[in-house]
Each structure stands twice: as structure tokens, then as C-alpha cells.
Design a protein around this nucleic acid. Structure first.
Length: 735
DNA sequence: CTGTGAGATGTA
DNA sequence: ACATCTCACAGA
């Protein structure tokens, strides 16, 4: 249907054709614009429209148009010469907006995040051979003609450089009509993947799994598939076969990754399999490159993208497969502006587009496991570790029976293993998910605790930088000598461990070992961090002390011992997914040892050796964990069984946040289940100075709550900077 | 009475 | 999101 064709009543009210245009602002509905004489638009077209005093890019939508005052109507300024967003993409945007309670305009903004890409990339000026011979063939000219045969298209200076002559030689040949100046289309952003390039030899187990995925791709219909396999079981090789199959069918492919910045090793593996790197899409991609990739994805010239969650909103035209790698990773959940969970939205995109989606993980999220268990998702398993990579032998260190000395945190059991590992010339990884030196500083005389002025949290001692810092809002102050409460000098004491403090202890005990601390706040930023990780992989450190960022990415060939310093750390933080997160993290970290062919160990220091998470870890079989966790969640109606939906209410003050939460509860009689959780279960977090409350409601009550929230907060009085609404993941409610 | 600025309002 | 408008209050 061509929009702008006669449309009932409104057509009589307005003399010209009118179309709905979704503009990038938080409006509930598309705005109406007129189409000037001689301009042709259709749904999905990217257009420039006047909006108040400025011009913005919007997308021609479909569906009914508002009957508004004819005087307000303004014409579309320009239709960009760009492939329109297809039907699937438009339905996807509508769907995401509806589900996340976001105005569709804000969702469409995510799809238009490459401003200069809407007009075609400029063609390149270059030269090509005409086939004619020059009148005199000098040595230099001969070299140029020989060099030119290497490729079809050349830039003038490029050819001169390749032939080792000056540009004037080429100019001379152009004058003689040996070469002519032509215009070439813009170069491809990435080379075409070659699906037959680096075909891996698969184990029987892998081949079977790959066959299942390929069969789904060939079916070319919606099929969510959980690909579950231990670290090192070769999940990547397996889903690469599905990728190859989709590419062979002329489909585009999207591989979602949690944090692309740290996965050079992924790019290398992809390159080795397909003979070219994938197009990368994440926040670190420079603007010009973003534009080229966005444009070429729309044109179908880019066949495969590996990207962070935002790549879900790229304008694919022929998408035939999405792979969500490390599907359990919390980084898939975006928690600002528009809230969405990329893993779940990937499933939705596949459902709307009618193609398979592969969710890959060694430790799937409980939601996905439940969906696989119920048959909603297909379940493909990879059992064995591939090749010579053996699983590390894991053991628990009961900290009640093997306590470290006072003020120390490494148990003698672990220290002994570190010593042995050093003697063998192998590497140790000590994992502690806590930056800085100590999480709490207090005065031994009066008991004063250093707290953030904005937040309710303790200030973390960062001794290397000499500051106390709030990890919620970023507030920091210099470390004082005296207690601000009682004035006593030199009686401040650090409580609890951070990575810096573990490093201090290790350096004291193993002064000759090369020890390095890796955490995200490392001086020198991400680039320095990447260098340090490479150095560790090259064996340039004996003991690595790191936060969770050491859990993934790099392969450390000499890493044979992993020690988890405070394995209980994440268990008591009030998150309904605390146990799951802890299990996934510890599983991943301990898996860093053992990919070596050498015998390797993991020691997990815990005060709760009977905890299901700890028991499941040493059993070496995730099955144990899922059974107990699914049981527990079913019992306490936690996600996914309670079908909980979280509403985040945030405000500038605690009183405001509480007030709004109370108002929501009071004013939504259709939703009596709304429950405000106290600090024990859902700590009132303070994020960048904003106080947040989480309300948990029954997802079955979602519809009335949605309409209530829309009515209350989408209209005046506008909650401007006072209330945000977030709908948490509820993967059962949308299929 | 004017100048300033935070918050409300509208953008088609 | 951003430009514009409105109304309260400070300064004179």
C-alpha cells in the first residue's frame, strides 16, 4: 500500500496527501506531514522533516494518521536516497516501544543513530586502464602498467606509489589515454566473508550440534535455539557453521556479543574461519566508519555484523540469523533511556522476521534454561571439552576451617597452591570482584564510617590513587589522616578486601613473583588494559589479581591456578538473580584455568560451602545449579516463575522516590500485587545521585499497569527528571 | 519594573 | 531532544 493514497475523512480535510512520520522525540505516536507535489514516499522511507525550528530525520510510518488542525501541517523537506526500513523492522520498533513502555519515537532514534548515512556515500575518483598502449614505453611507464594489472581500480597516487614512480608519470599516461579518470562506488566497509575459507574440523559432538543449527537455518522459519556447551567445547565453531549456512543462502547475519571492546580474539577467530573480519558495531567505532557500515548494512553490501546490543537496530534488509553469544551476560540489558534486554529483543526480531536465533552460553540464564526445558526453545548441547582442553579440578576452601591470618584474605590452602604453581613456572589468577583497596573505612576510636554525601553507600578506599570513592555516583574525596567525627589522627582502618589489598598481601608473601592488578579503573584506560591482558597472555606475569573483567576474552595459555578470594561476595546483594550471577561468574572465572593442556586447579574460598552455588560448582555440572535454582525460584515466585516485572521508580530524593512508588501502588487498583521491596531485598540504589526504587509486580497485571503508567506519567504533569519506568525482562510473556 | 532562570510545554 | 514560553522572585 502506498501511503498518502486517499485516506477516508482526513483526505477531505487536507488538500494534499498526508503521511505519518515517526520523529525522534518522545511522542506516543507518529506526526502527520504533507507530501509535496512530485515527491514520492512510502512506509519506511527515511525523510527530513521540519520540527519546530529545526530539521530532523524521521521515518515514514504506516497505520492511521491523526486528524489534526490543517494549519499545523508542514511538508516533508527531503526524502533521503536510502533504502527504506522494511516492514519487519518497523513492526520490531513498534513492538519494542510497546513492550518497554517507551515512546516509539525514542526507539526509532536508536535505528537512526548514523546521521550522515542517510544520503549515499560519495563515489571515489580514480583511474582505470583503457587498454590502449602509450606511444613511448619507458621503464617507469612499464612499471605503472604492470602494477595497474594487479587491480581494476586505482587512485592516481595509489598507483604511482605501488609502481614506485612519481604521480607525473601516471599523469603522462592519462594524457596519452592509457588510463582514464572514472568514478568508482565507495569501497566496501569490510571484505565479503568466504564461507568455504577456514572450515574447521569438527568433533562428532560438534558436527551433530552444527547440523541441528544448519537445519534450522535451512528451514528459514522462527526457531529459538539454546546452544549450551562448557567453556572450550567449541560453541563458536559450531555456530559459525550456522552463520556460513545463512550466508550461503544469501541472508545477512548478526552476531551479538556482550562487550566487543575486549574481544579482539573473537575477531581473529572469525577472520580465520571466513577469511575476513566481520563489520564491528559498538560505541568505540569511529563516526565515519559507523556511517559506512550503517549505510552498507541497509544496502545489503555488509553481510555480517558482530556487534553490541545496539546492532539489533541496524537496518538489515535480509536478516536470516541472529546469534546471541554469552546470552546470559547482564550487559545485554540496557538500563538507561530506553530499557530493553537485547537477548530477548533478538528473539522477538527473529520471531517477526521468521528466522532462527541461537542463544549460546556455557552458563545460560535461568530464563533461557526454563524456556529450553519447557520446549519453547530448542536445546542443543555440547558435552565434551574439545581437543586437549581439560576442565580444571575445582575445590572449595572452607574459610571457617582454614582462616587466613588476621587482616589477611588468602587462605593458607590457596597460598600453598600459589607457591607450587610459581615453582612450576605457571600462572595464577586471583579473582575478587571488588575494585580498590577496601570497601569500607572506619575510625577505630569513634566508629565513624566514611559514607558518600549523595548516596547511602560506603566510600571505597582507592589507596593507589589516594582517594575514597563512591562506586554508585562517582563522588570522591582525598583520604584524610584524621577522623572527621572525633578528630583522632591515624586511627582510620580499612575493612574488607579489594584487589589492591590482595596485591599488597601477595607481594609481601611472594616478593619475587611478577604480580599485576587488572581492574577497569586501571590508569591508562582501556588501551593500557588491553596491552596488559596481552602481556599476561604472553606469560609476562606470574600472579594476576583481577576483577570480573578477567573472566572473559583473553586466552591465557599458562594459567593453571585460579583462586576465587571471596566467592560469597555476590550472593547477598538483594538481586533476585544474585545466585545465578555468582554461579555464572565463578564458573567463567575458574574456567580460565584448564584451557592449557596442563593440569589445572580452581580453589574457591567460601564461608558457605553448602550453598547450592558452591556445591554445583565443584560438581562440575551446571545441571545441579539449574535444578536447585529453578526450584528455589519457583518456590519464591522469582523470575521467571513469578513472571515478575520490575518497575524502577527513580527520583532525586529518597522521599520523592518513595512517594512516587506509593502513588503508583495507590492509583493502580487493578494492580494490587505491586509490592515495594525493602532494602533487604531490593536496596534503594542511588545511581548518579538519583534514588531508585524497584517495584515488583505480577507480569500478568502488565496491561493495566502499562495503561496506568502511560496515563499518569506520559502526560502532564510530566515527570521530568523525577520518575523513570523500567520494565524488567520477562521472557515468558512475549512468545 | 526589568532581568534571570528553572520548570512546563509543544513540536505535525 | 530541544527550542520556546511562563511565572516566581531578586535586585533596583
Amino acid at each position: 500500500m502506498r501511503l498518502g493514497a486517499p485516506l477516508n475523512l482526513t483526505d477531505q480535510l487536507f488538500p494534499e496527501t498526508i503521511v505519518p512520520v515517526l520523529v525522534p522525540l518522545p511522542s506516543d505516536r507518529p506526526y502527520s506531514y504533507t507530501v509535496p507535489e512530485g515527491m514520492a514516499v512510502r512506509p519506511g522511507a527515511i525523510v527530513q522533516v521540519p520540527l519546530g525550528p529545526r530539521q530532523v530525520a524521521g521515518v515514514v510510518w504506516d497505520g492511521p494518521i491523526d486528524a489534526i488542525d490543517a494549519k499545523k501541517l508542514r511538508p516533508i523537506t527531503h526524502v533521503f536516497e536510502c533504502p527504506p526500513l522494511d516492514e519487519t523492522m518497523r513492526r520490531f520498533i513498534d513492538w519494542v516501544a510497546e513492550y518497554t513502555l517507551s515512546p516509539p519515537g525514542l526507539v526509532v532514534r536508536m535505528a537512526l543513530r548514523a546521521p550522515a548515512a542517510f544520503d549515499p556515500e560519495p563515489w571515489i575518483t580514480g583511474i582505470e586502464a583503457t587498454g590502449e598502449a602509450p606511444d613511448r614505453l619507458t621503464a617507469a611507464r612499464q612499471r605503472v602498467i604492470a602494477a595497474a594489472e594487479e587491480a581494476h581500480a586505482w587512485s592516481k597516487s595509489g598507483l604511482a606509489h605501488a609502481a614506485g614512480v612519481s604521480v607525473s608519470v601516471v599523469d603522462g599516461l592519462i594524457k596519452q589515454n592509457v588510463f582514464r579518470i572514472t568514478r568508482f562506488p565507495p569501497p566496501p566497509a569490510v571484505a565479503e566473508p568466504d564461507t568455504g575459507y577456514g572450515r574447521a574440523t569438527l568433533s562428532p559432538d560438534q558436527a551433530k550440534a552444527a547440523g541441528d543449527l544448519v537445519a534450522a537455518v535451512e528451514q528459514a522459519s522462527f526457531a529459538p535455539i539454546l546452544l549450551e556447551g562448557a567453556t572450550g567445547s567449541g560453541k563458536t565453531e559450531v555456530y559459525f557453521e550456522a552463520v556460513a549456512s545463512a550466508l550461503d543462502q544469501g541472508k545477512q547475519v548478526l552476531i551479538l556479543l556482550p562487550e566487543i571492546a575486549l574481544t579482539q580474539s573473537f575477531i581473529d577467530r572469525f577472520d580465520a574461519r571466513f577469511g575476513a573480519p566481520p563489520a564491528e558495531w559498538h560505541s568505540d567505532v569511529p563516526p565515519r566508519r559507523r556511517e559506512a557500515i550503517w549505510r552498507q548494512v541497509a544496502e545489503g553490501r555488509v553481510r555480517i555484523v558482530a556487534g553490541a546490543r545496539s546492532s539489533l537496530f541496524l537496518p538489515f534488509q535480509e536478516l536470516g540469523l541472529i546469534v546471541v553469544d554469552e546470552e546470559h551476560d547482564p550487559a545485554y540489558k540496557q538500563e538507561d533511556r530506553t530499557f530493553y534486554h537485547a537477548r530477548d529483543m533478538a528473539v522477538v526480531r527473529a520471531s517477526l522476521g521468521g528466522f532462527p536465533v541461537v542463544l549460546a552460553s556455557a552458563t545460560p540464564s535461568v530464563e533461557t534454561r526454563v524456556n529450553a526445558g519447557s520446549g519453547r526453545y530448542a536445546h542443543v548441547r555440547l558435552k565434551a571439552r574439545h581437543g586437549d582442553a581439560a576442565l580444571p579440578e575445582l575445590a572449595l576452601v572452607d574459610m571457617r576451617r582454614h582462616p587466613p591470618a588476621r587482616g589477611r584474605f588468602v587462605s593458607p590452602v590457596l597460598a600453598t597452591e600459589i607457591k607450587k604453581t610459581l615453582q612450576r613456572g605457571e600462572q595464577t589468577l586471583l579473582f575478587l570482584n571488588r575494585r580498590g583497596y577496601a570497601p569500607l573505612t572506619l575510625c577505630r576510636v569513634c566508629g565513624h564510617r566514611f559514607q558518600c554525601h549523595n548516596c547511602s553507600t560506603w566510600l571505597v578506599d582507592h589507596r593507589l590513587r589516594g582517594i575514597l570513592q563512591c562506586h554508585h555516583c562517582g563522588f570522591s574525596m582525598g583520604r584524610p589522616e584524621a577522623c572527621p567525627e572525633c578528630g583522632t589522627l591515624d586511627h582510620l582502618v580499612a575493612c574488607g578486601p579489594g584487589v589492591e589489598r590482595i596485591a599488597e598481601e601477595i607481594v609481601e608473601d611472594f616478593p619475587d613473583a611478577r604480580t599485576i592488578v587488572l581492574s577497569s579503573d586501571i590508569a591508562g584506560g582501556p588501551r593500557r588494559l588491553r596491552r596488559e591482558l596481552e602481556a599476561v597472555a604472553d606469560g609476562e606475569a606470574d600472579i594476576v589479581i583481577g576483577t570480573q573483567l578477567v573472566a572473559k576474552g583473553h586466552h591465557f595459555p599458562k594459567m593453571t591456578l585460579v583462586g576465587a578470594i571471596d566467592a560469597d561476595l555476590g550472593l547477598a546483594n538483594g538481586d533476585p538473580r544474585a545466585a545465578e550471577r555468582t554461579f555464572q561468574l565463578l564458573h567463567q572465572v575458574t574456567g580460565r584455568a584448564g584451557r592449557t593442556g596442563l593440569a589445572s586447579h580452581g580453589l574457591i574460598q567460601t564461608f558457605q560451602p553448602q550453598h547450592p552455588v558452591m556445591q554445583a560448582l565443584i560438581a562440575g555440572d551446571p545441571e545441579n545449579f539449574y535444578e536447585s535454582e529453578i526450584d528455589e525460584r519457583r518456590r519464591s515466585a522469582l523470575p521467571p516463575f513469578g513472571r515478575l516485572t520490575a518497575i524502577i521508580v527513580s527520583a532525586d530524593t529518597r522521599a520523592d522516590a518513595e512517594n512516587h512508588a506509593r502513588e503508583i501502588r495507590k492509583a493502580a487498583p487493578e494492580a494490587p500485587e505491586i509490592e515495594m521491596l525493602g532494602p533487604a531485598e531490593a536496596p534503594l540504589a542511588v545511581v548518579r545521585g538519583r534514588h531508585r526504587f524497584r517495584l515488583l509486580v505480577e507480569a500478568t497485571r502488565r496491561a493495566p499497569i502499562q495503561s496506568y503508567l502511560r496515563a499518569t506519567f506520559a502526560k502532564a504533569p510530566r515527570p521530568r527528571g523525577s520518575v523513570q519506568v523500567q520494565i524488567d525482562v520477562d521472557p515468558q510473556s512475549f512468545l
